[in-house]
């Protein structure tokens, strides 16, 4: 761990203790993250890995900025839409497929997505405009913020075909020799914890969101993963494969990513 990063989080803890984070009212979650909860996450490797993009420790203002940006307060008259409106104050998102869970994603990962939305490397009608109106600093600040908050996992709704779930678990664990699909656990690790900073967690992510993203990779709309491997993998997957593996990972509960 770089000393600068460690220092940043030490400061964040101090800052939080002195000036409580403003109460946030989200669409899905209404609780304010307690300072003690945030502090407990500070030593989590996932939060610490490359949460900042440079060696220089961000100043105190940046650490205050994160929650403010999440609430829609930003330099250029705000992003037009507060993050919390759709993703919630704690990043829980929802199951519609459009709003992923952001809670606990590595800071670098979220920051990169914002940059990619802004540049068009990850085209999205809603997010591109929002990201473009955030300054570099604001992207960094809000990414750090969502990397340290906590939110409970939404329980999946409705019935699921167990055969489909079984197939999803198999794809996740050993891939498919027949189709030439490598196992998800190769990079997203055992129990879908991800491999920060570049590889996001899958455990507890919404199935609708995941399968939609796989579809975008397959179609070549999205092609922004750090290792450049996802499009080749998604191309080999059928819609059923995507649905299966997404439904499976939504049901994987791992304390590393779900806090439960």
């Amino acid at each position: 761990m770089k000393p600068g990063i460690r220092k940043t989080f030490a400061r964040l803890a101090m800052l939080a203790a002195l000036a409580p984070i403003p109460v946030m009212v989200g669409a899905q979650d209404t609780e304010t993250p307690a300072i003690s909860e945030l502090e407990a996450r500070l030593d989590d490797e996932r939060s610490l890995f490359n949460a900042t993009v440079s060696d220089t420790a961000p100043d105190d203002d940046l650490l205050e900025l994160g929650p403010l940006v999440a609430m829609g307060g930003a330099e250029n008259g705000g992003s037009g839409m507060a993050c919390i409106t759709c993703h919630g104050g704690q990043g829980a998102g929802d199951g519609s497929g459009a709003f992923p869970r952001l809670t606990g994603l590595s800071g670098w990962y979220t920051y990169k997505q914002l940059n990619d939305y802004a540049s068009g490397a990850r085209p999205n009608e809603v997010m591109t405009g929002i990201a473009q109106r955030l300054t570099e600093r604001e992207r960094e600040a809000v990414a750090v913020y969502y990397s340290v908050v906590e939110a409970p996992i939404e329980k999946p709704l409705g019935e699921i075909d167990l055969g489909l779930l079984q197939w999803g678990g198999q794809l996740a664990a050993v891939g498919s020799a027949e189709k030439g699909i490598p196992a998800c656990v190769n990079c997203h690790c055992a129990e879908g914890t991800g491999n920060p900073p570049s590889v996001p967690y899958l455990a507890g992510q919404y199935a609708n969101y995941m399968s939609y993203q796989l579809q975008l990779w397959k179609e070549g709309v999205r092609d922004n993963d750090a290792m450049g491997v996802m499009s080749a993998i998604a191309e080999k997957m059928s819609e059923e494969d995507m649905r299966a593996v997404s439904e499976y990972y939504m049901r994987v509960h791992n304390p590393e990513t779900t806090g439960e």
């Binding site: 498919s176 699909i181 490598p182 656990v185 190769n186 690790c189």
Partner: peptide, 10 residues
């Protein structure tokens, strides 16, 4: 043996 089923990380 096969790459998908035999050589996957972790």
């Amino acid at each position: 043996r096969h790459d998908a089923t035999s050589f996957g990380a972790p």
